[in-house]
Design a protein around this nucleic acid. Structure first.
Lengths: 119, 119, 119, 119
DNA sequence: GTGGTCTAGACCACA
DNA sequence: GTGGTCTAGACCACA
């Protein structure tokens, strides 16, 4: 994974997003053990507390779970992963649409544009 | 207009984008005189050269034109304004689609999602 | 190349013209690396920013392209080079004709004169 | 007439050219009295000696003649005026052709271009 | 007042 | 080393 952060959003939130995507896309698969908090902190050059906070959020959303002394693992609940995927997708769609609204593109025009684009 | 810049993109390019949107959305209308280079520089707290550069790009794209000693004005060529609007829209659509691809949403799924969202 | 400038036209525009001709005539050939911005600035005794500006224009017209950290290179798009050659030629023809008009030579008379001249 | 000079050519030569054109185009007609040396010098903001020198050249070429105490007059020799017109035209044609040669346009291609231009 | 050009010089990313 | 961006500030033409 690449870890670049911008300054407009707290790093832990950006981390949450990136880890969610890593799980959704299967970079971390169901049942996989995540690297330890310390290792992640090292790799990303970020304070371990920040990692903890991000992972806490993921655990709240049941995307990962903790086995004491063994580490943190990606959930086996594939349905939940799909649910989160849809949430993120929907959120991005909403942001995109409101973005396009600023340019005064109506939803139908946007859909039209999308259909015209190859790929 | 609000002028906040992030550090990932040159200021003059961000300015170009914002001014384009201001013209497309009619914040600055056809025939309107823009604030003088110096005034814009003051308002945005940026060097006049940076303004010049951004406005130069807009002029290259025929979105504005200069009357020497009088100032810079928004083009009367509405067709060109529409053309630029479409360019920007298309670019945003493309970015959005490739963004969604990272989340493994295919185009049709994205369009489906968009249709389901109100407005 | 020789670099002499007159005062009636901005240096960067004169530079653009000279570099275009250098590319059109093959002084700089397709794929050639141009001297670095700093070297050109030294050679021509002009500020690097002025060079940048001129080269920026050439890049806008796709006569050169930049490889970051490596330098600027002449385009491989021979067709575009020919297009620019024709543009410049046409422009010079137009200027010449209107020049001759001041002397009250009609176009046909000018063409007649040209045919009479050897070479 | 407008009098702007550039620095690459002696002013008196530029004056000669402009006065020739003024005569050829009929701005000063056959038999017209030219303004006095002093008046010309004033109008053009140039040293009277420079005017003298330019007019001397015109007199050598029999484009003007001097009536002692009355002033300088445009020649009545229309044939000579035509001859000079042709000289200047031919010179401009030659300059133009050699200019185009630098861009590697052959004479026939130039003539072709000229025929394609409207006007 | 308006915009246009240019310089000197700093600092950045990238390799 | 390469190019890219930006600032501060000067000077110009034009009206």
């Amino acid at each position: 994974m690449d870890f670049e952060f911008d300054d407009n959003k707290p790093i832990y939130k950006q981390l949450v997003d990136k880890l969610k995507i890593a799980i959704i896309t299967g970079y971390y698969k169901s049942g996989d053990r995540l690297p330890s908090v310390r290792d992640l902190a090292m790799e990303i050059s970020v304070n371990p507390n920040t990692i903890q906070r991000a992972l806490g959020e993921l655990e709240n959303e049941h995307l990962i779970y903790t086995k004491r002394t063994l580490g943190k693992f990606v959930t086996d609940d594939l349905e939940n992963i799909q649910k989160v995927r849809l949430e993120i997708g929907t959120m991005k769609v909403d942001n995109f649409i409101s973005d396009m609204h600023l340019l005064e593109f109506e939803r139908d025009e946007v859909i039209q544009l999308m259909k015209e684009r190859k790929q």
